[in-house]
Design a protein around this nucleic acid. Structure first.
Lengths: 363, 363
DNA sequence: TTGAAAGCGTTACCAT
DNA sequence: ATGGTAACGCTTTCAA
């Protein structure tokens, strides 16, 4: 029984297009059999040269590699993914955030992207807004080998989905019940406590916390809650009153929050600010009300280093290590995909950068 | 000749994993033939129900859809991409930018992502740092149906690559020689000119331009060059001297740039600021040197609306319509993928939001 | 309106 | 060390 239809490689439709041109003049995809023919070997040999799964003689390898280069052959990713169990693509699930968080978010994405590309893996973006169904789709249709979910909230609907996934998943952030899901996070509680203790060590006995917007707490963003509670616990342990206020990132919001904490403790001499967007407004406001930094008010911030560095005066800060977290999340995921067990929980420790915005309290 | 090895679906290895469980208890991928069997139809019928490429009786369709739902079947994307000419995935090529640009960049990514997801397409991220070879890889290995490249520079090495691609590509930004590549951009020249003319209309005859960092101009970033040159041309057309300075986004940088433009024209009464990061520092500095806004100095900014709105005083601005540009870029690409010809060039017109930071010059 | 079967491009098993 | 060939899971032509 001879095949009735023309051999595919003789007139191969209009698939991928690379170097070769058909007699008609339109560009045409180069495939593995074309390479095999050109090199005078069998298709399986070409495949083995590509995968390195079998010893190949030096001479044959040379001829095959030459043919690949000459024809500009690139293996078809889809075809490959049928036989291999992997696509070399991972997904990253982003929440749709308010404008203020975009810069941080991009930092995470870049960190993961850079780490993935360094290993030759590709990164697909998904949004949480698609609903958790989208995560299932990407995995069940075998588009991705694993998933990184970022901005995990305390009660996050994505967590149970990822748990049931049958594909590796890594969380950036800490849910209330991780259920054995591998996750990496910054130790926000330690960061908050570290700031309070630093002021306490300098001699401050009246310390306040200026946090994120009220609705950030309302939606139970893990980082906001944990940082604040770490700070409040440290205050309590130091025998200080727990003074704090949420803060909207506007000049008026900063003024209001400052008034709020002064209302709670009129003798405040130290403030910890965990609100990147509002930090400049806090400094302006303190200047306005005659509390110059650090002479009459000591300030610490949890914010990116470059932001803290450019304030006037430069602000001592604890920075979220987003690059490191992103890289670490990818490494965990890559390891899981390769079948290597990973620690369920990893917390990165905070580090304080002194820039002179915090000194001893005024006598 | 009976097949020697067991039928695949009888003991189908360990492929994708969904609802079904093998006798051994491990989860197993549901495939199209499983659906066909469950519905009592042939595989081709299931395929046609999925694709809608052939009329199906109501009764059959119902049974097939029921089986798909019952088994939780999701078509294997890779297998599908072999026969179809498409993967339903597009790539977005990002440059690795300095920190300051991250927020804007994320806005573009989100806009494209949202538009793509709304059409059921997925977004793959690539970085320019991989080198242009990576673009070729993604396309030649048939991983993506098309490419969006953002932050196109005046002389951009990606442009010739995209031109040779044999797959649709859309640029966000305008290269010197678009070579018929479809591109969308904000009319930065018009934006710059609009700001200058607005001040001129208010009666200002001494206007300066405070721009991006010197190295942004050095690497010939299209947006920086075009905005500045649009402004300088407008100054010339209004018969004014062309006064401008690059500006580093630090308090010192802002002070220096302000000194620079005052050196060029000591009678300046209006300033246009195209430097999102430095805008707060410019306002602080003007306050410091006794040029309060808008009484003794009128200010216009090219920056995001929410930033301008939160300055003290709120700053009249022209905003980069990143969301619209991202959405538009995706729509152009989707249309090209679907074979519909698109306009080569699209420029979005600037719009000025008045917030009261610009008034008549002091008499 | 439906089914059978021949691909799609790559991989891996079985031979030699 | 290499080749032949049957999968992989889905699509589409051809036939009924």
């Amino acid at each position: 029984m001879e095949p009735v239809r023309p051999k595919a490689s003789a007139a191969p439709g209009f698939g991928r297009m690379t170097c070769l041109c058909s007699p008609e003049g339109n560009p045409v995809a180069v495939k593995l059999v074309d390479v095999a023919r050109q090199a005078g070997v069998s298709p399986s040999t070409v495949s083995y040269v590509l995968s390195g799964n079998r010893p190949i003689s030096e001479e044959t390898r040379r001829r095959v590699e030459q043919a690949i280069a000459d024809l500009g052959f690139k293996p078809h990713a889809g075809a490959r993914s049928i036989r291999r169990q992997a696509t070399n693509v991972i997904a990253m699930v982003l929440p749709m955030l308010e404008d203020g968080q975009r810069a941080v978010q991009m930092q995470f994405v870049f960190a993961v992207l850079a780490a993935a590309r360094a290993q030759g893996r590709n990164l697909l973006l998904a949004t949480a807004e698609d609903g958790v169904a989208e995560i299932h789709n990407l995995v069940d249709s075998a588009m991705v080998d694993g998933v990184i979910a970022m901005e995990i909230q305390v009660h996050d609907p994505r967590v149970p989905v990822l748990k049931e996934l049958n594909r590796p998943a890594v969380l950036i952030g800490t849910p209330e019940d991780p259920e054995q899901l591998v996750h990496v996070d910054f130790d926000f509680a330690a960061a908050g406590a570290m700031c309070v203790r630093h002021l306490h060590d300098l001699g401050h006995r009246h310390i306040g916390w200026l946090g994120q917007s009220a609705d950030t707490y309302a939606r139970e963003a893990g980082y906001a809650l944990r940082a604040r509670d770490g700070a409040l616990s440290a205050m309590a342990e130091c025998g200080l009153p727990r003074v704090w206020s949420p803060m909207t990132a506007t000049p008026a919001g900063a003024a209001e929050a400052i008034e709020d904490v002064f209302g709670q403790d009129p003798e405040l001499t130290g403030l910890v600010v965990y609100n990147e967007q509002a930090l400049p407004f806090v400094l302006s406001r303190l200047r306005e009300i005659g509390r110059e930094v650090p002479g009459r008010m000591s300030i610490l911030a949890i914010c990116p280093d470059d932001l803290a560095e450019h304030m006037v005066p430069a602000v001592s800060d604890v920075a979220l290590p987003a690059d490191e977290l992103g890289r670490l999340a990818f490494e965990r995921l890559a390891a899981l995909i390769d079948g290597r067990a990973q620690p369920v929980s990893t917390l990165l420790e905070p580090r304080l950068n002194r820039r002179g915005s915090a000194g001893p309290p005024p006598r």
